[in-house]
Design a protein around this nucleic acid. Structure first.
Lengths: 204, 204
DNA sequence: CGGCCTTTACATACATGAATGTATGCCAAG
DNA sequence: CTTGGCATACATTCATGTATGTAAAGGCCG
Protein backbone atom coordinates (compact mmCIF):
# COMPACT_ATOMS: atom_id res chain seq x y z
CA UNK A 1 0.00 0.00 0.00
CA UNK A 2 1.02 3.51 -0.50
CA UNK A 3 0.48 6.63 1.47
CA UNK A 4 -3.08 7.76 2.32
CA UNK A 5 -4.49 11.19 2.95
CA UNK A 6 -4.78 12.51 6.48
CA UNK A 7 -8.44 11.56 6.70
CA UNK A 8 -7.71 8.03 5.53
CA UNK A 9 -4.92 7.72 8.07
CA UNK A 10 -7.25 8.77 10.85
CA UNK A 11 -9.75 6.22 9.58
CA UNK A 12 -7.23 3.38 9.74
CA UNK A 13 -6.34 4.48 13.25
CA UNK A 14 -9.96 4.14 14.25
CA UNK A 15 -10.19 0.84 12.39
CA UNK A 16 -7.22 -0.46 14.35
CA UNK A 17 -8.88 0.56 17.61
CA UNK A 18 -12.13 -1.08 16.52
CA UNK A 19 -10.26 -4.25 15.66
CA UNK A 20 -8.47 -4.14 18.99
CA UNK A 21 -11.80 -3.97 20.81
CA UNK A 22 -13.15 -7.00 19.02
CA UNK A 23 -10.07 -9.18 19.29
CA UNK A 24 -9.35 -8.18 22.89
CA UNK A 25 -12.92 -9.07 23.80
CA UNK A 26 -12.78 -12.39 22.00
CA UNK A 27 -9.36 -13.64 23.08
CA UNK A 28 -8.30 -11.50 26.03
CA UNK A 29 -5.74 -8.71 25.98
CA UNK A 30 -2.74 -10.78 26.99
CA UNK A 31 -3.32 -13.46 24.37
CA UNK A 32 -3.82 -11.25 21.36
CA UNK A 33 -0.79 -10.18 19.37
CA UNK A 34 -0.50 -6.91 17.55
CA UNK A 35 -0.28 -9.00 14.41
CA UNK A 36 -3.78 -10.37 15.02
CA UNK A 37 -5.18 -6.90 15.57
CA UNK A 38 -3.56 -5.58 12.44
CA UNK A 39 -4.76 -8.47 10.29
CA UNK A 40 -8.28 -8.12 11.69
CA UNK A 41 -8.25 -4.54 10.50
CA UNK A 42 -6.82 -5.49 7.12
CA UNK A 43 -3.43 -3.99 7.91
CA UNK A 44 -0.01 -5.12 9.02
CA UNK A 45 1.90 -4.52 12.22
CA UNK A 46 3.61 -1.62 10.49
CA UNK A 47 0.40 0.37 10.72
CA UNK A 48 0.02 -0.42 14.39
CA UNK A 49 3.56 0.65 15.25
CA UNK A 50 3.09 3.80 13.21
CA UNK A 51 -0.01 4.94 15.09
CA UNK A 52 0.87 3.58 18.54
CA UNK A 53 4.04 3.17 20.51
CA UNK A 54 3.19 -0.37 21.63
CA UNK A 55 0.36 -2.53 22.95
CA UNK A 56 -0.09 -0.53 26.14
CA UNK A 57 -0.29 2.69 24.19
CA UNK A 58 -2.93 1.22 21.89
CA UNK A 59 -4.84 0.00 24.91
CA UNK A 60 -4.83 3.44 26.49
CA UNK A 61 -6.04 4.98 23.24
CA UNK A 62 -8.85 2.44 23.16
CA UNK A 63 -9.86 3.43 26.69
CA UNK A 64 -9.63 7.09 25.76
CA UNK A 65 -12.57 6.76 23.39
CA UNK A 66 -15.01 5.90 26.19
CA UNK A 67 -14.13 8.01 29.19
CA UNK A 68 -17.36 8.43 31.13
CA UNK A 69 -17.05 10.28 34.42
CA UNK A 70 -19.93 9.49 36.72
CA UNK A 71 -20.24 13.07 37.87
CA UNK A 72 -20.95 14.10 34.30
CA UNK A 73 -23.94 11.79 34.23
CA UNK A 74 -25.42 13.48 37.26
CA UNK A 75 -24.84 16.90 35.81
CA UNK A 76 -26.61 15.95 32.61
CA UNK A 77 -29.72 15.37 34.65
CA UNK A 78 -31.36 18.72 35.17
CA UNK A 79 -34.96 17.60 35.14
CA UNK A 80 -36.12 17.12 37.80
CA UNK A 81 -33.85 19.31 39.85
CA UNK A 82 -31.51 17.74 42.35
CA UNK A 83 -32.75 20.00 45.08
CA UNK A 84 -36.38 19.05 44.97
CA UNK A 85 -36.15 15.28 44.43
CA UNK A 86 -32.62 13.90 44.73
CA UNK A 87 -33.69 10.27 44.71
CA UNK A 88 -35.35 10.71 41.35
CA UNK A 89 -32.26 12.49 40.07
CA UNK A 90 -30.12 9.57 41.15
CA UNK A 91 -32.43 7.15 39.42
CA UNK A 92 -32.29 9.11 36.19
CA UNK A 93 -28.52 9.47 36.33
CA UNK A 94 -28.14 5.73 36.77
CA UNK A 95 -30.54 5.15 33.90
CA UNK A 96 -28.43 7.42 31.72
CA UNK A 97 -25.38 5.39 32.65
CA UNK A 98 -27.13 2.16 31.72
CA UNK A 99 -28.13 3.57 28.35
CA UNK A 100 -24.58 4.59 27.59
CA UNK A 101 -23.19 1.27 28.63
CA UNK A 102 -25.50 -0.58 26.29
CA UNK A 103 -23.89 1.11 23.30
CA UNK A 104 -21.60 -1.54 21.79
CA UNK A 105 -18.42 0.44 22.11
CA UNK A 106 -18.92 1.32 25.77
CA UNK A 107 -20.00 -2.20 26.59
CA UNK A 108 -17.07 -3.82 24.81
CA UNK A 109 -14.42 -1.60 26.31
CA UNK A 110 -15.74 -1.95 29.83
CA UNK A 111 -16.08 -5.69 29.41
CA UNK A 112 -12.45 -5.81 28.32
CA UNK A 113 -11.34 -3.67 31.22
CA UNK A 114 -13.27 -5.69 33.80
CA UNK A 115 -13.19 -9.23 32.50
CA UNK A 116 -10.61 -9.60 29.77
CA UNK A 117 -7.40 -7.96 30.88
CA UNK A 118 -4.86 -8.47 33.61
CA UNK A 119 -2.20 -6.18 35.03
CA UNK A 120 -0.02 -5.49 32.05
CA UNK A 121 2.92 -3.18 31.56
CA UNK A 122 2.20 0.13 33.25
CA UNK A 123 -1.54 -0.53 33.08
CA UNK A 124 -3.42 -1.69 36.15
CA UNK A 125 -7.11 -2.24 35.45
CA UNK A 126 -7.85 -2.80 39.12
CA UNK A 127 -6.65 0.66 40.01
CA UNK A 128 -8.84 2.07 37.27
CA UNK A 129 -11.84 0.16 38.59
CA UNK A 130 -11.10 1.37 42.09
CA UNK A 131 -11.05 4.94 40.88
CA UNK A 132 -14.35 4.45 39.06
CA UNK A 133 -15.89 2.85 42.14
CA UNK A 134 -14.66 5.58 44.49
CA UNK A 135 -15.95 8.28 42.21
CA UNK A 136 -19.33 6.61 41.93
CA UNK A 137 -19.62 6.01 45.66
CA UNK A 138 -18.61 9.57 46.43
CA UNK A 139 -21.24 11.02 44.14
CA UNK A 140 -23.88 8.66 45.47
CA UNK A 141 -23.04 9.61 49.03
CA UNK A 142 -23.38 13.30 48.22
CA UNK A 143 -26.80 12.91 46.70
CA UNK A 144 -28.11 10.50 49.30
CA UNK A 145 -26.96 13.02 51.88
CA UNK A 146 -28.98 15.60 50.05
CA UNK A 147 -31.94 13.24 50.07
CA UNK A 148 -31.57 12.59 53.78
CA UNK A 149 -31.59 16.31 54.60
CA UNK A 150 -34.96 16.53 52.91
CA UNK A 151 -36.31 13.60 54.88
CA UNK A 152 -36.67 11.37 51.84
CA UNK A 153 -34.71 8.50 53.35
CA UNK A 154 -36.21 5.97 55.75
CA UNK A 155 -35.44 7.03 59.32
CA UNK A 156 -32.43 5.48 60.95
CA UNK A 157 -31.01 4.87 57.51
CA UNK A 158 -27.74 6.75 56.99
CA UNK A 159 -26.82 8.24 53.60
CA UNK A 160 -23.48 6.44 53.70
CA UNK A 161 -25.20 3.11 54.13
CA UNK A 162 -27.60 3.91 51.32
CA UNK A 163 -24.73 4.82 49.05
CA UNK A 164 -22.80 1.68 49.86
CA UNK A 165 -25.82 -0.53 49.29
CA UNK A 166 -26.56 1.13 45.99
CA UNK A 167 -22.96 1.00 44.87
CA UNK A 168 -22.70 -2.71 45.65
CA UNK A 169 -25.97 -3.31 43.85
CA UNK A 170 -24.81 -1.41 40.78
CA UNK A 171 -21.43 -3.07 40.80
CA UNK A 172 -22.85 -6.55 40.99
CA UNK A 173 -25.37 -5.86 38.27
CA UNK A 174 -22.67 -4.30 36.14
CA UNK A 175 -20.34 -7.27 36.44
CA UNK A 176 -23.10 -9.77 35.81
CA UNK A 177 -24.24 -7.95 32.70
CA UNK A 178 -20.73 -7.49 31.32
CA UNK A 179 -20.13 -11.20 31.68
CA UNK A 180 -22.97 -12.01 29.27
CA UNK A 181 -24.96 -9.16 27.96
CA UNK A 182 -27.21 -11.40 25.85
CA UNK A 183 -28.81 -12.76 29.00
CA UNK A 184 -30.66 -9.58 29.89
CA UNK A 185 -30.98 -5.91 29.08
CA UNK A 186 -29.12 -3.64 31.44
CA UNK A 187 -31.64 -0.81 31.24
CA UNK A 188 -34.63 -3.10 31.68
CA UNK A 189 -33.47 -5.26 34.56
CA UNK A 190 -31.29 -2.52 35.97
CA UNK A 191 -34.16 -0.07 36.11
CA UNK A 192 -36.35 -2.59 37.89
CA UNK A 193 -33.74 -3.36 40.50
CA UNK A 194 -32.73 0.23 41.10
CA UNK A 195 -36.33 1.34 41.32
CA UNK A 196 -37.14 -1.45 43.75
CA UNK A 197 -34.13 -0.60 45.88
CA UNK A 198 -34.95 3.11 45.92
CA UNK A 199 -38.52 2.28 46.91
CA UNK A 200 -37.21 0.22 49.80
CA UNK A 201 -34.98 3.03 50.96
CA UNK A 202 -37.46 5.86 50.48
CA UNK A 203 -39.28 7.29 53.47
CA UNK A 204 -42.77 5.77 53.47
CA UNK B 1 18.16 -33.01 43.80
CA UNK B 2 17.48 -36.63 44.10
CA UNK B 3 14.31 -38.55 44.55
CA UNK B 4 12.04 -37.75 47.55
CA UNK B 5 9.60 -39.89 49.47
CA UNK B 6 5.93 -39.86 48.51
CA UNK B 7 5.09 -37.47 51.31
CA UNK B 8 7.82 -35.09 50.22
CA UNK B 9 6.62 -35.26 46.65
CA UNK B 10 3.09 -34.40 47.75
CA UNK B 11 4.55 -31.53 49.73
CA UNK B 12 6.37 -30.07 46.74
CA UNK B 13 3.15 -30.38 44.74
CA UNK B 14 1.38 -28.28 47.35
CA UNK B 15 4.32 -25.89 47.46
CA UNK B 16 4.05 -25.44 43.70
CA UNK B 17 0.34 -24.69 44.00
CA UNK B 18 1.02 -22.23 46.82
CA UNK B 19 3.66 -20.52 44.71
CA UNK B 20 1.28 -20.41 41.78
CA UNK B 21 -1.33 -18.64 43.91
CA UNK B 22 1.10 -15.98 45.01
CA UNK B 23 2.70 -15.31 41.65
CA UNK B 24 -0.59 -15.44 39.76
CA UNK B 25 -2.06 -12.93 42.17
CA UNK B 26 0.93 -10.63 41.93
CA UNK B 27 1.54 -10.67 38.17
CA UNK B 28 -1.57 -12.12 36.58
CA UNK B 29 -1.96 -15.61 35.16
CA UNK B 30 -1.05 -14.80 31.59
CA UNK B 31 2.15 -12.98 32.47
CA UNK B 32 3.63 -15.53 34.82
CA UNK B 33 5.79 -18.26 33.38
CA UNK B 34 6.04 -21.74 34.78
CA UNK B 35 9.69 -20.93 35.40
CA UNK B 36 8.71 -18.12 37.76
CA UNK B 37 6.34 -20.38 39.67
CA UNK B 38 8.94 -23.10 39.98
CA UNK B 39 11.67 -20.72 41.17
CA UNK B 40 9.30 -19.14 43.66
CA UNK B 41 8.77 -22.60 45.14
CA UNK B 42 12.51 -23.33 45.13
CA UNK B 43 12.19 -25.83 42.27
CA UNK B 44 12.73 -25.94 38.52
CA UNK B 45 10.29 -26.35 35.65
CA UNK B 46 11.03 -30.05 35.73
CA UNK B 47 9.05 -30.39 38.93
CA UNK B 48 6.13 -28.48 37.45
CA UNK B 49 6.00 -30.64 34.33
CA UNK B 50 6.24 -33.75 36.45
CA UNK B 51 3.23 -32.90 38.63
CA UNK B 52 1.13 -31.08 36.03
CA UNK B 53 0.56 -31.48 32.32
CA UNK B 54 0.85 -27.75 31.62
CA UNK B 55 -0.18 -24.34 32.91
CA UNK B 56 -3.90 -24.98 32.46
CA UNK B 57 -3.66 -28.23 34.36
CA UNK B 58 -1.84 -26.53 37.22
CA UNK B 59 -4.47 -23.81 37.23
CA UNK B 60 -7.29 -26.35 37.49
CA UNK B 61 -5.50 -28.08 40.34
CA UNK B 62 -5.18 -24.74 42.11
CA UNK B 63 -8.92 -24.16 41.74
CA UNK B 64 -9.61 -27.68 42.94
CA UNK B 65 -8.31 -26.85 46.39
CA UNK B 66 -11.04 -24.28 47.06
CA UNK B 67 -14.26 -25.61 45.58
CA UNK B 68 -17.03 -24.06 47.64
CA UNK B 69 -20.55 -24.87 46.49
CA UNK B 70 -23.01 -22.33 47.76
CA UNK B 71 -25.62 -24.95 48.53
CA UNK B 72 -23.21 -26.52 50.97
CA UNK B 73 -23.03 -23.29 52.92
CA UNK B 74 -26.78 -23.26 53.36
CA UNK B 75 -26.83 -26.86 54.44
CA UNK B 76 -24.22 -26.21 57.06
CA UNK B 77 -26.61 -23.80 58.70
CA UNK B 78 -28.94 -25.86 60.84
CA UNK B 79 -29.53 -23.36 63.60
CA UNK B 80 -31.96 -21.72 63.30
CA UNK B 81 -33.96 -24.02 61.08
CA UNK B 82 -34.74 -22.92 57.57
CA UNK B 83 -38.41 -23.54 58.03
CA UNK B 84 -38.96 -21.24 60.96
CA UNK B 85 -36.80 -18.27 59.99
CA UNK B 86 -35.46 -18.48 56.44
CA UNK B 87 -34.20 -14.90 56.35
CA UNK B 88 -32.01 -15.52 59.34
CA UNK B 89 -30.77 -18.73 57.75
CA UNK B 90 -29.82 -16.81 54.61
CA UNK B 91 -27.99 -14.24 56.68
CA UNK B 92 -26.01 -16.90 58.50
CA UNK B 93 -25.19 -18.77 55.31
CA UNK B 94 -23.88 -15.59 53.73
CA UNK B 95 -21.86 -14.89 56.86
CA UNK B 96 -20.35 -18.35 56.63
CA UNK B 97 -19.40 -17.62 53.04
CA UNK B 98 -17.74 -14.36 54.05
CA UNK B 99 -15.76 -16.11 56.74
CA UNK B 100 -14.49 -18.71 54.31
CA UNK B 101 -13.57 -16.12 51.74
CA UNK B 102 -11.45 -14.24 54.24
CA UNK B 103 -9.15 -17.21 54.60
CA UNK B 104 -6.05 -16.34 52.55
CA UNK B 105 -6.24 -19.31 50.23
CA UNK B 106 -9.89 -18.78 49.33
CA UNK B 107 -9.41 -15.07 48.93
CA UNK B 108 -6.35 -15.42 46.73
CA UNK B 109 -7.81 -18.03 44.43
CA UNK B 110 -11.06 -16.16 43.95
CA UNK B 111 -9.21 -12.92 43.39
CA UNK B 112 -7.16 -14.65 40.71
CA UNK B 113 -10.23 -16.13 39.09
CA UNK B 114 -12.14 -12.86 39.07
CA UNK B 115 -9.50 -10.19 38.58
CA UNK B 116 -6.24 -11.75 37.46
CA UNK B 117 -6.94 -14.19 34.67
CA UNK B 118 -8.29 -14.03 31.15
CA UNK B 119 -9.69 -16.74 28.93
CA UNK B 120 -6.81 -19.07 28.53
CA UNK B 121 -6.50 -22.45 26.88
CA UNK B 122 -9.57 -24.55 27.64
CA UNK B 123 -10.25 -22.47 30.74
CA UNK B 124 -12.94 -19.81 30.71
CA UNK B 125 -13.20 -17.98 34.04
CA UNK B 126 -16.32 -16.15 32.92
CA UNK B 127 -18.20 -19.40 32.47
CA UNK B 128 -17.09 -20.46 35.92
CA UNK B 129 -18.29 -17.17 37.40
CA UNK B 130 -21.59 -17.54 35.60
CA UNK B 131 -22.05 -20.97 37.07
CA UNK B 132 -21.26 -19.67 40.55
CA UNK B 133 -23.68 -16.78 40.09
CA UNK B 134 -26.48 -18.99 38.79
CA UNK B 135 -26.04 -21.41 41.62
CA UNK B 136 -26.09 -18.63 44.19
CA UNK B 137 -29.11 -16.93 42.67
CA UNK B 138 -31.01 -20.21 42.45
CA UNK B 139 -30.41 -21.01 46.10
CA UNK B 140 -31.32 -17.48 47.15
CA UNK B 141 -34.55 -17.64 45.15
CA UNK B 142 -35.50 -20.91 46.83
CA UNK B 143 -35.03 -19.55 50.30
CA UNK B 144 -36.63 -16.19 49.63
CA UNK B 145 -39.58 -18.11 48.24
CA UNK B 146 -39.70 -20.00 51.49
CA UNK B 147 -39.57 -16.70 53.37
CA UNK B 148 -42.38 -15.26 51.26
CA UNK B 149 -44.65 -18.23 51.98
CA UNK B 150 -44.27 -17.45 55.64
CA UNK B 151 -45.11 -13.80 55.11
CA UNK B 152 -41.68 -12.59 56.13
CA UNK B 153 -41.18 -10.53 52.99
CA UNK B 154 -42.59 -7.04 52.51
CA UNK B 155 -45.89 -7.27 50.63
CA UNK B 156 -45.77 -6.78 46.89
CA UNK B 157 -42.12 -7.80 47.01
CA UNK B 158 -41.51 -10.95 44.98
CA UNK B 159 -38.97 -13.58 46.06
CA UNK B 160 -37.33 -13.44 42.65
CA UNK B 161 -36.77 -9.70 43.00
CA UNK B 162 -35.42 -10.15 46.50
CA UNK B 163 -33.01 -12.81 45.27
CA UNK B 164 -31.81 -10.67 42.38
CA UNK B 165 -31.27 -7.66 44.60
CA UNK B 166 -29.37 -9.71 47.12
CA UNK B 167 -27.29 -11.44 44.49
CA UNK B 168 -26.31 -8.14 42.87
CA UNK B 169 -25.47 -6.74 46.30
CA UNK B 170 -23.29 -9.72 47.16
CA UNK B 171 -21.63 -9.73 43.77
CA UNK B 172 -20.74 -6.06 43.94
CA UNK B 173 -19.43 -6.35 47.46
CA UNK B 174 -17.48 -9.45 46.51
CA UNK B 175 -15.79 -7.78 43.56
CA UNK B 176 -15.00 -4.64 45.51
CA UNK B 177 -13.45 -6.60 48.31
CA UNK B 178 -11.43 -8.86 46.05
CA UNK B 179 -10.00 -5.82 44.34
CA UNK B 180 -8.41 -4.62 47.57
CA UNK B 181 -9.09 -6.58 50.67
CA UNK B 182 -7.00 -4.29 52.87
CA UNK B 183 -9.58 -1.56 52.49
CA UNK B 184 -12.24 -3.26 54.59
CA UNK B 185 -13.18 -6.52 56.24
CA UNK B 186 -15.62 -8.59 54.26
CA UNK B 187 -17.38 -10.04 57.28
CA UNK B 188 -17.66 -6.67 59.00
CA UNK B 189 -18.87 -4.49 56.17
CA UNK B 190 -20.61 -7.38 54.47
CA UNK B 191 -22.60 -8.24 57.57
CA UNK B 192 -23.69 -4.64 57.96
CA UNK B 193 -24.86 -4.34 54.39
CA UNK B 194 -26.59 -7.71 54.27
CA UNK B 195 -28.30 -7.06 57.57
CA UNK B 196 -29.44 -3.65 56.43
CA UNK B 197 -30.74 -5.05 53.18
CA UNK B 198 -32.59 -7.88 54.89
CA UNK B 199 -34.13 -5.38 57.29
CA UNK B 200 -35.34 -3.34 54.34
CA UNK B 201 -36.90 -6.38 52.71
CA UNK B 202 -38.42 -7.90 55.85
CA UNK B 203 -42.12 -7.52 56.50
CA UNK B 204 -42.53 -4.74 59.06
C1' DC C 1 0.82 24.89 -13.19
C1' DG C 2 4.52 21.50 -13.56
C1' DG C 3 8.80 19.53 -11.68
C1' DC C 4 11.25 18.45 -7.49
C1' DC C 5 11.77 17.34 -2.78
C1' DT C 6 10.49 16.08 1.69
C1' DT C 7 7.57 13.77 4.71
C1' DT C 8 3.83 10.65 5.66
C1' DA C 9 1.63 6.25 6.10
C1' DC C 10 2.25 2.33 5.86
C1' DA C 11 4.48 -2.85 4.33
C1' DT C 12 8.31 -5.94 4.67
C1' DA C 13 12.37 -7.97 6.54
C1' DC C 14 15.30 -8.97 10.31
C1' DA C 15 17.13 -9.67 15.00
C1' DT C 16 16.14 -10.79 19.66
C1' DG C 17 14.24 -12.76 23.75
C1' DA C 18 11.08 -15.27 26.18
C1' DA C 19 8.20 -19.23 27.05
C1' DT C 20 6.94 -23.73 25.94
C1' DG C 21 7.36 -28.77 25.46
C1' DT C 22 10.26 -32.63 25.24
C1' DA C 23 14.20 -35.44 25.78
C1' DT C 24 17.59 -36.98 28.60
C1' DG C 25 20.32 -37.57 32.84
C1' DC C 26 20.61 -38.77 37.63
C1' DC C 27 20.03 -40.43 42.18
C1' DA C 28 17.62 -42.49 45.87
C1' DA C 29 13.14 -44.94 47.37
C1' DG C 30 10.90 -49.06 47.42
C1' DC D 1 17.24 -53.20 40.00
C1' DT D 2 13.46 -50.81 38.59
C1' DT D 3 10.80 -46.82 38.84
C1' DG D 4 9.57 -42.36 40.80
C1' DG D 5 10.86 -37.48 41.43
C1' DC D 6 12.98 -34.30 39.95
C1' DA D 7 17.08 -31.20 37.27
C1' DT D 8 19.27 -30.04 32.99
C1' DA D 9 19.77 -29.43 28.13
C1' DC D 10 17.79 -28.74 23.68
C1' DA D 11 14.61 -27.52 19.88
C1' DT D 12 10.84 -24.84 18.45
C1' DT D 13 7.51 -21.43 18.33
C1' DC D 14 5.90 -16.89 18.85
C1' DA D 15 5.62 -12.04 19.85
C1' DT D 16 8.06 -7.98 20.04
C1' DG D 17 10.77 -4.01 18.44
C1' DT D 18 13.38 -1.97 15.03
C1' DA D 19 15.29 -1.14 10.62
C1' DT D 20 14.55 -0.51 6.06
C1' DG D 21 11.85 -0.02 1.76
C1' DT D 22 8.38 2.58 -0.84
C1' DA D 23 4.87 5.03 -3.12
C1' DA D 24 2.07 8.71 -2.84
C1' DA D 25 0.68 13.30 -0.49
C1' DG D 26 1.51 17.80 0.20
C1' DG D 27 4.29 21.64 -0.08
C1' DC D 28 7.88 24.99 -2.38
C1' DC D 29 9.76 27.26 -6.17
C1' DG D 30 10.30 28.77 -10.57
Amino acid sequence: MARRTKAEAAATREALLDAAEEVFLAKGVAHTSLEQIARHAGMTRGAVYWHFKNKADLFQAMLGRVRMPFQELIEEVTEPSLEESPLEAIRLAILRGFERLEQPRYRRVHAILVHHCEVFGDIDPLTMQNEMADEACGALTDYFTCAARQGQLREGFSPALAAELMQALLGGLFHDWLRNHEQFSLVTKGSELVEAQLTLMRHP
